[in-house]
């Protein structure tokens, strides 16, 4: 882990002002921000761990908890909102049994709502591991979750 973090910091020539992008790259590497990685960033960049923690907890893009295999992001921009995204969010939470921003205990699904994705013509939009699903509705979201659940099950077999 230490090596990986050092390599990322090197990409930015060890410039402290790039703390946010460095953390973004670290998160991309490990899927979340493990404590050891944060300590390593702090030590190698000479930024106090308290500052690193402040930054990590301030910005929405960072997660201190591991994310699921399927990362669901539901767009909650105003356009999606007026087209019923709230009902879809409630449905996804109900089906997965978790709140927005959480991950299922088996680490299969993470569900978050995000600000505008700028694909308003397709609203409401649900993004699953980077793939866009437009004109979402309640029934469609249930179907997608079922499909992923089944796929997940077969993968494990």
């Amino acid at each position: 882990m230490e090596e990986k973090v050092k390599e990322i910091i090197q990409r930015y020539s060890g410039d402290k002002s790039y703390l946010v992008p460095i953390l973004q790259d670290v998160q991309r590497e490990f899927n979340y921000l493990p404590k050891d990685a944060l300590c390593s960033v702090s030590a190698n960049l000479s930024v106090p761990i308290s500052r690193v923690y402040e930054v990590v907890t301030f910005y929405k893009a960072f997660s201190l908890k591991p994310k699921g295999r399927y990362q669901l992001s539901l767009c909650m921009g105003t356009a999606c909102h007026v087209r019923g995204a709230e009902l879809i969010a409630r449905n996804i939470s109900d089906v997965l049994g978790i709140k927005e921003g959480d991950t299922t205990p088996d680490l299969e699904f993470s569900f978050e709502t995000v600000g505008c994705l700028g694909a308003c013509a397709l609203g409401p939009v649900l993004v699953v591991n980077g793939e866009y699903h437009g004109h979402m509705n309640i029934a469609k979201s249930t179907k997608i979750l079922k499909k992923l659940g089944k796929k997940g099950a077969t993968d494990d077999e």
């Binding site: 402290k16 002002s17 790039y18 703390l19 946010v20 992008p21 953390l23 973004q24 930024v47 500052r51 402040e54 930054v55 301030f58 910005y59 929405k60 893009a61 960072f62 600000g115």
Partner: peptide
Amino acid sequence: INRGGGAFVCGESSALFASLEGRAG
């Protein structure tokens, strides 16, 4: 180029500067 960390308030100029400097926005 600097990529933001997902904070609406960073669209405000002085918060944006703080973020560019590697601090909370």
